[in-house]
Design a protein around this nucleic acid. Structure first.
Lengths: 330, 330
DNA sequence: GATGCCATTGTACACGTGTGCAATGCCTGC
DNA sequence: GCAGGCATTGCACACGTGTACAATGGCATC
């Protein structure tokens, strides 16, 4: 019944050593950078390894090296294209530096704990968090285990926990300026009440700028910054001619909601945030603030690597630059 | 300079055993399901473990257990919201069954090889592929190592490689019927020429159904099934009144392209495929064929687990059911 | 030719865990 | 009281790898 091909044991460095006629240590050294092996030995080992289909077992290696090169990526809100693009860029950045991302979806706040607990079992080399920020106690446990954590666009400072945060001050300011320059006089910002740390900072910066410039501005709170809430918020937005939506995903809802209510989009200025691909689509053609998540991913991984070398270092915060992308809506 | 908190060694089962006053084997058994430990011992171990902050090292465990519970997820095309939703669902399904997904972005066909090669080093418990299908030779190597592979919506049959495929026959047929029922008389299908296996199957089923029903139908080839190509294809679509776009992502481009050309969308019937969230947005309100990627993810993980138990089993193919979602465009 | 240096090699231990095996002790049934 | 069964425990080995240490040998220098 079987193909006669016995379910052959996993091929190990012993097998390679035997076939190549060298010691097992020589095999190990061949696959270890900067180890001392003669060219002839290396050649023999490579030949034998290829013939046997040998691959170094990284998990066994991690045991002795005390580094797994696995990095936990705790993510949430992937229905927003920005978030999925973000984790895509993070994965690329990690893989590019020879780390392996373990993707852990954590849509409920409570599941963040469970996911991060799991990560401690895999003694990961680090953790990137784009979901809700983990509680301080948990972060301290990671610090005690010398596992670096980097939070992306999340919460307040936690000892030994680095952060990458979009430049929300600039974003809020430019949003206000752009709307005013476009001729808006009655401004409003639409933003979720509790959820997103970075979105609230944008809102505050926006309102502060308006105050400083003596412009009329109001906050229109919603529950979450998504399409549905944006659509619903359009009703309340009818009295304004300049809208700052704290992310593009919600801005599309606002635009569709305004259109559904029969408003002329040409007469109302709208600025979004993130510059997700859909913002460039003809149906929206949305003026927005570009948050370059490729750069942001690089920053995060860079911080992670820095902390691997110096776990007890004081926490650092890196800001991701924001630029305006002018399109039809402002 | 340091906080006096010595960078304490990783706490191991030895430490827990010592503190609890039991043997290390007792500790191991406490954390192994179905192992024989007395309630008192278990209690003592749990107490000591909690005090020390001990966690079982899964990587060390995997060495002896020969199963890492890591599963490689090779993904591509995450700019399409369907693909990102797909990997989100896959990740959830895996985590729900106590596997950990390693996310490997492989946008170029060549990088699929590199990524999957990496996976062999981490001796993963399995691999899910949603990017380009890996070459047969590589798949056979995985089979030789008894590593299950499941391809999702990809390529032709490969020995010992299971597949989950969307029910493209039904999709193509329903697309044709829906357009005809809506009153279309000159039909066309827009589809990428080489890229997607499943998309081409949809196209063929669509054309076959049209032939059978005696309806006029034509294929409009594009390069890739994305927004930009859809937008460009709108020019060629001007002569038809019934369009089947093989995915929603491209359908949006077609719609925007038609609008930009001044065509009245109300007079042209359009059917997409996937039912991504954006299809329900007011700007598009697209009639489409729902490909339930949560169910699909379950199917894929189920196949994976089945093959873990029986690696040499003949390959199986599972089909994901498709249902029509009627909205404004047809 | 003797000496010192250096590259290379093999031996042996370490990493943190699961489990077969034999030993122990308790309990049940006669 | 005694045999037998059963749950529990500890010892020791295994998993696959990296590397410190000592040993070896080649080569250049005196």
């Amino acid at each position: 019944m079987s193909e006669g091909d016995n379910p052959r044991r996993k091929v190990t460095s012993f097998d390679v050593a035997e076939r190549a006629g060298v010691s097992r240590a020589a095999v190990s050294r061949t696959f270890t950078p900067n180890a001392s092996v003669s060219p002839e030995t290396r050649e023999k080992v490579h030949k034998a390894a290829k013939e046997l289909g040998y691959r170094v077992n990284y998990l066994a290696r991690s045991l002795i090296n005390r580094r797994s090169d696995l990095v936990g990526v705790v993510a949430a809100g992937m229905d927003n294209p920005f978030r999925s693009q973000q984790i895509h860029e993070i994965a690329k950045a990690l893989v590019g530096r020879n780390f392996r991302p373990i993707l852990l979806p954590a849509d409920e706040a409570e599941s963040v704990n469970r996911m991060m607990d799991q990560l401690l079992h895999y003694n990961v080399s680090g953790v990137l968090v784009t979901s809700d920020a983990p509680p301080t106690a948990l972060c301290e446990e990671f610090a005690a285990h010398a596992v670096p954590i980097v939070l992306i666009n999340k919460g307040d400072a936690i000892p030994h926990v680095d952060r990458v945060i979009s430049d929300d001050e600039t974003a809020g300011r430019i949003a206000a300026q752009t709307l005013l320059e476009a001729g808006a006089t009655r401004l409003a910002v639409i933003c979720g009440a509790e959820v997103s740390y970075t979105a609230r900072r944008r809102q505050e910066a926006f309102l502060a700028t308006c105050r400083k410039l003596g412009a009329s501005a109001q906050a229109l709170p919603v529950v979450i910054n998504d399409y549905g809430n944006g659509f619903a918020a359009a009703a309340a937005a009818a009295d304004f001619d300049g809208l700052f939506c704290v992310n593009d995903y919600m801005a599309f809802g606002v635009i569709d909601g305004l259109r559904a209510a029969g408003r002329d989009i040409g007469k109302i200025r709208i600025v979004g945030h993130d510059d997700i691909p859909q913002a460039a689509w003809a149906a929206y053609d949305l003026t927005t603030l570009r948050q370059p998540c490729d750069i942001q991913a690089e920053q995060a991984v860079e911080l992670l690597m820095g902390r691997m070398d110096a776990p007890r270092m004081a926490e650092r915060t890196e800001f991701t630059p924001v630029t305006v992308v002018r399109r039809a809506t402002a």
